[in-house]
Every structure is written in structure tokens, then in C-alpha cells.
Design a protein around this nucleic acid. Sequence first.
DNA 1: AACATATTTTATAATAATTATCATATGGTA
DNA 2: TACCATATGATAATTATTATAAAATATGTT
Lengths: 154, 154
Amino acid sequence: METRIERIKKQLHSASYKLTPQREATVRVLLENEEDHLSAEDVYLLVKEKSPEIGLATVYRTLELLTELKIVDKINFGDGVSRYDLRQEGAAHFHHHLVCIECGAVDEIQEDLLEDVESVVERKWNFKIKDHRLTFHGICYRCQDKDKEVEKVD
Amino acid sequence: METRIERIKKQLHSASYKLTPQREATVRVLLENEEDHLSAEDVYLLVKEKSPEIGLATVYRTLELLTELKIVDKINFGDGVSRYDLRQEGAAHFHHHLVCIECGAVDEIQEDLLEDVESVVERKWNFKIKDHRLTFHGICYRCQDKDKEVEKVD
DNA sequence: AACATATTTTATAATAATTATCATATGGTA
DNA sequence: TACCATATGATAATTATTATAAAATATGTT
Ligand SMILES: [Zn+2]
Ligand SMILES: [Zn+2]
Ligand SMILES: [Zn+2]
Ligand SMILES: [Zn+2]
């Protein structure tokens, strides 16, 4: 955790930005909630718990900055808010998501499943891929189990 | 075109909605601009050209309805607006997109490249896939050519 | 340290997209 | 035609995000 912050600090410095207390507090919230997919508002409320003096605009600016530096990825699951997702350290590509249409859970796939697809796209469509977004919408394993229970009862 | 509208009319009817003049005008705009990725506002302005009395709220409502019925797909490329994309008739899955980070162009891939990936996800993550969103961000063939020209000149 | 300068933050206003409200209009049916 | 559900249009309200400007903080220089 601390070393991770140190490295982010360096990334900021090498782009000539500082790791201000507000930025550090924001990064900490992202690290502490790595498995979640927080909106700017979510982040703001969590940061506020420990640093009540922070302003919402600062959180927005910090998230924008972290996005520029590819420390976080900004993603939209179609519900009208942008969500911010820490990139795995050293990950070449953004990970994939499984969004459950029954319970709303968002699970992650860290494995890169697109290597073959990407080489096809680069060759056949002559498109130089820099990044991707892949999201599956469907029923998560938990809800499948739930659904089975219901069937039994019926 | 006309037959396509007829079929959409049937789809609406079988869900007990009517194809009102406003809905038909909206669908026509989508059909006439099938290759584009229009926002609600874009659609509104185009519909207005031929049906000036239509209201923006009606366009939003119609697009929402068409989305529910899977006649169009709602997509977000990260620029803060939802865009609406006619689904290919009979297409099992939503097509993929290539978004150019230099010129903003959005190209489409109708071919389903995800079959293998999806079967892996269904098995390994035990996730029942209903839909997907796949977008590549990178440099389109046009901009790659442009970039080469610039290099020559330099 | 005192000063000048650049960066960052806060609070707030402004903007933009989308949704809600409600009175009116439409269209089919008894 | 009268009735009833549905749909529409104008507008207000809401929500997310961005812009603005004054104050605070940090950096570099004398
Ligand atoms: Zn679920
Ligand atoms: Zn994620
Ligand atoms: Zn391009
Ligand atoms: Zn498309």
C-alpha cells in the first residue's frame, strides 16, 4: 500500500504534478476500495470521512488527472455516471467486467482474453489499438443459484 | 426500408405499443443514419427537420422504448452523451466499435469476434452472457495514413 | 526571511444531459 | 359519440460535470 502510493507519487512527479494531501487522500480511497467501481460522488463521500475539508471539484480534478496518467480508468456501465477503476500495476490493458443484470454486481476479469481478437482487428481493420473496453451483461453465478432455488420452491 | 419499418411496427404491437407518427419519424431518422452514432439531441434535430412539432422528451421516450425492445442499443463512448445504434436485424449480439482517438471517427465491426471469448467466460466464470459491449480505442486507418504523410514532410 | 510566481484548492455558479410533471391531444372501442 | 388508456409537448426539476475566481499553499530567488 505505502509503496504503491510512493510509486504513484513518482508517476505524478514525472509528469510534474505534486501529490497534495487531497490527492493522496483520494488515491488512498481508491486503493482501499480497489474491488469496487466508485463514482466521483462515491469517492468524494469516502474521502470526506477522513478529510472533511475536501471539495467535490478537487475529487473530480484528481480523478481526471489520474485518468490522464493511466493510473485509473474511467468507465461507464450505462447508468449515467462515470466510474473510476484503479488499473492493475503494470497492466498493459484495462481489465474486463461482468455486470449482472439481476443484482447489479460488477465482477472483474483480470486475464486478458482479447489478445487474439485484437490481432485480428489490427490486421483486418488496420486499426492501431491503444486501449479497449469490454463488458459482458448477464446473470452472475450468485443469481443463477438464487434463480435455481426459486425454481425449486415454485 | 418500408418493410423494415413494418417489422418494427409489429415488434411494437406485440409489446402492445403503437407506432405513432412521432415514433415512426424517429425510427426513420435512425434508419436513414444507420452508419452514424447519434445522440438523443442529434436525433431530435434530424426528426425536427421533417416533423417540426415533435418534442425532445418524446424523442427521449421513443429511444428508451426502442432500447427496451432491443431495436436499438444505447452506448456510451465516454464523452458524456448516450448514443443510439440500430441493431442489425436478427443480430444475436451488439456489434463492436473502433473509436479513433485522433479524429473521433467511430467505425463498426459487424462480425462477431467474441464467440470463443464468450464461451470461456461462461464456463470459467460461470456467467450467463446476455449481451456485451466491446470498444477499441486507437488510431484508425485514415489517421495512420495522415500521420505517415506528416512524417514524410517533417 | 521577504518577495514574486506558479500551482492547487474551495466554494459556488454555470452548463449539459436526462427525467419528471401535468395539462392536452390522440386513437381505438363500446 | 362518449369513454378510457396511451402518448405527446412544453416546461420544470434533477443530476452529473465543468468553469470561475478568490484564497491558500508551495516553490524559487534575492
Ligand atoms: Zn447477480
Ligand atoms: Zn474493474
Ligand atoms: Zn482517425
Ligand atoms: Zn455502431
